[in-house]
Simulated scan of single mutants.
Amino acid sequence: MDKQTLAILVTIGFSLVGVIGDYFLKRASLAEHSLRSGWFYVGFIVYASTAFGWVFVMKHLKLATVGVVYSVSMILLLSAVGAIVYRETLNATELVGIGLAIGSLVLLMRFA
């Protein structure tokens, strides 16, 4: 596996870690004192844990590529968590937006 492919996979993995961090931050937001809840600190630590890996990713990918791969991964994963865990519904406009996000990723990978 070449380093560029590995960097893309690491970026997607960081999206998953970011979603886990977002889950804990969402739990913190439901607490009366959000910034003092244990959920906030867990979410903060989860996010901070990815800092060293981002240096590897940015060494092997353009920042625009990192941004698109990370953003689309986050959109898909957070939408899934919202729908499955929090029973949030997606309207037609949001579904079109998700489709366009996936299309942007396809275009970026095809012409990068």
Rank of each mutant, 00 (worst) to 15 (best):
G67D: 08
V10K: 02
S104G: 15
Y23E: 00
R36F: 06
H33W: 07
D22K: 03
A28I: 10
M74Q: 05
A64R: 09
A64T: 05
V17W: 14
I102P: 00
L63P: 11
L100W: 07
L25W: 05
A92N: 09
E32S: 08
W39Q: 06
A64M: 08
I84N: 02
V17Y: 11
I84H: 03
L105C: 09
V85R: 08
V72G: 01
V69A: 07
A80L: 14
M58A: 08
V96L: 14
D22P: 04
W39G: 01
E94I: 14
G43L: 00
L76C: 11
S71I: 04
I84R: 01
R110T: 03
L16D: 00
A101M: 11
S104T: 09
S49N: 06
V66A: 05
M74H: 04
F44I: 15
Y86Q: 01
L105R: 06
A7Q: 08
T65S: 00
L9C: 15
V96S: 06
S71Q: 13
M109E: 11
G13I: 13
G43A: 02
V66I: 13
F40E: 01
R36M: 03
S49I: 12
I98K: 10
G18Y: 10
S37E: 00
A51V: 15
L9A: 13
F14W: 04
